[in-house]
Structure formats: C-alpha cells, structure tokens
Amino acid sequence: MEQNQDSTPVKSIARATKILRVLAEIGGSGGALGDVAKASGFGKTTTHRILAALSEEGFTYQDMATRRYHLGAGLGLLARSAAVNEIGTLAQPVLMRLAEETEDTAYIQVREGLRSVCLGREQGAFPIRTLSLNVGQSRPLGVGSGGLAILGSLAPTEVEAVIEANRRWLADYPTFSPEKISGLVRQTRAQGYAFVEGLMIPGINAVAVPIKDAGGRPVASLNITAIAERIHGDRALWLAGLLREEAQKLSAALLRSDR
C-alpha cells in the first residue's frame, strides 16, 4: 500500500504545483494518469487524489473520451489576473523579434519578491545555442543579467535589503557573492544596462535591461545571452540599445493595458 506522504498542507501544495507543471510540460495532448504519475515521481494513488482535488477547483479536467488530464480554465482565469502573465503575453512577439534580429537567445524574466523568474525564451538561428535558463526557473534577484538589471534599478536601500535577505541562497551561486553583486549593481547603474561576463557559465556572456511599470519600478527584464565572442565591445552596446528600445515599448504597452 502506498504511504500517504501529504502530511502537511505545505507538502500538499508543493505536490499539486508539481502536477500542474507536469501537465503544462505535456501540453495540449494531455496526460494519462500513469504518465503524470511517472513524470511527477508520485504513485498513482497520490497523483489521482491530487488531480481530483485540482479538478474540483477547475484547475485541471479529465477528457472522458481519452481519459487524459489537461489544465483547466480555472488556472487560466488566475493567470489572466496576474501581472506577470500579461507581461509574458506582451513580450512573446518581442522575444521573437529579438531572437530573429540578433540570432541569439532572448529571455524575459519577472521579479517575484526576492527572486527573478524566467517567463519566456526564444532561440535565435546562431548554431551555438546558449540555453542558460529554463522557462519557470528562478534565481536570487541579482544573479544573472536579467535579475541584475532588475536589482540595479531599485533604490540603494532596497538593493542592500534584497542582497542581505538572499545571503543564504546566494551561497548556491559562488560567482555571485553579496560583495560581487553589489559591485555589479554599481556597474549596471553606471553603464545603464546589466552586463555579465562568464559568471553563470564560463564562455557565456549576457546583457539585459529592465522593464518598468508606470511608477518607474522594475517589474521585469529583457536579456540576450550568447557565447562571449558575440557579446562584447560594440556589439554588446548595440544589443543593449536594442533591448532598451523593446523594453520601452513593453513599458508603454503595460501602461496602456492598465487604463
């Protein structure tokens, strides 16, 4: 008999979230109970119980003809009420343009408290791919060019508070020590964009700019990542200018959508 591991509400929420992510990755074809259980790492009994609870709330549903599970409309309603979803929708054509024009990989990240979360990614045509960040992946704010662009646009006192609050998490990123991030923030402010050289992955550079809301607060960032030979000198400046233009357009689009 399968043991009941859902001993706390927090664990139950974590398991439900994992099931939702599995269904999101499976996509429109949906997933059979066994497939969802295998992908999530849970037993079939636990998976079925979680899916049933999510279905009651409208977050998932089962196609009676195929017996496969899908994400439900209730989840879409929640997503549409979230600002990050709106930014992600608006940014998709921007990412496509950036990837096409630069031939490199374009990302959008959003701020969620003390972290930055990758909301979208588009790959360019350049044969050497630099997929340094997956959609849905989070990092401490200030780690990587996208999070650095956001952090560098905050008030100095807030920057210090964020770095201090993330101190234990930053231990997982030795090339981004609190002292290193403080120096990178000063550099970002001085040059007007974030530039990271080989700190996340040796030989990989990245440039990023913030996306700001109507009040001038950074809510997200756009960045381009490529091998170091493609992001340096004049080309880095060109990329920063290109990103800045697109970020300003996104900021204006967010302002229009709020009215």
Rank of each mutant, 00 (worst) to 15 (best):
M1S: 13
M1F: 10
N4T: 11
Q5I: 15
Q5K: 14
S7G: 15
S12E: 14
T17W: 10
T17Y: 12
T17I: 12
L23G: 03
A24D: 15
I26L: 11
G28C: 08
G30C: 07
G31D: 01
A32W: 00
L33W: 00
K38Q: 14
K38L: 13
A39G: 02
S40M: 02
S40Q: 02
G41H: 00
F42W: 02
F42Q: 12
K44H: 03
K44E: 14
K44D: 09
T45E: 14
T47W: 00
T47R: 02
R49N: 12
L51S: 05
L54R: 06
L54W: 04
S55I: 04
S55P: 01
S55L: 00
E56M: 06
E57F: 12
T60R: 03
D63K: 10
D63P: 07
A65W: 01
G72E: 01
G74D: 06
L77D: 11
L77K: 12
R80K: 13
S81H: 11
S81I: 07
A83S: 14
V84A: 13
V84L: 14
I87D: 08
L90S: 06
Q92L: 13
P93F: 13
V94L: 07
M96Q: 15
A99I: 07
D104W: 11
D104V: 12
T105G: 07
A106R: 07
A106D: 04
V110A: 15
R115I: 03
L119C: 09
G120P: 03
E122G: 06
E122P: 06
E122H: 13
Q123D: 15
G124M: 04
P127N: 07
R129E: 05
T130I: 04
T130C: 14
L131R: 10
L133K: 09
N134E: 15
N134A: 15
V135Q: 08
P140L: 07
P140C: 08
L141F: 01
L141M: 04
G144C: 03
G147N: 02
I150D: 02
L151N: 02
A155V: 07
P156L: 09
P156G: 08
T157M: 08
E158T: 10
E160L: 10
A161S: 12
V162A: 09
I163M: 08
A165E: 13
A165H: 05
R168S: 15
W169G: 06
L170Y: 02
A171V: 11
Y173S: 04
P174K: 06
F176P: 01
S177L: 06
S177G: 10
E179Q: 15
K180D: 13
L184T: 09
L184I: 05
V185Q: 08
Q187T: 12
T188H: 02
Q191N: 05
Q191I: 12
A194W: 05
L199K: 12
M200Y: 10
M200E: 13
I201T: 13
G203P: 06
I204P: 11
N205K: 07
G215L: 07
G215P: 07
G215R: 11
V219E: 08
V219N: 05
T225Y: 00
R230L: 06
R230P: 05
I231R: 08
H232Q: 14
G233P: 05
L237H: 10
L239T: 04
G241Q: 10
L243E: 03
E245L: 12
E246P: 00
A247E: 01
S251H: 01
L254E: 09
S257A: 15
S257D: 14
D258N: 11
D258I: 06
D258T: 13
R259C: 09
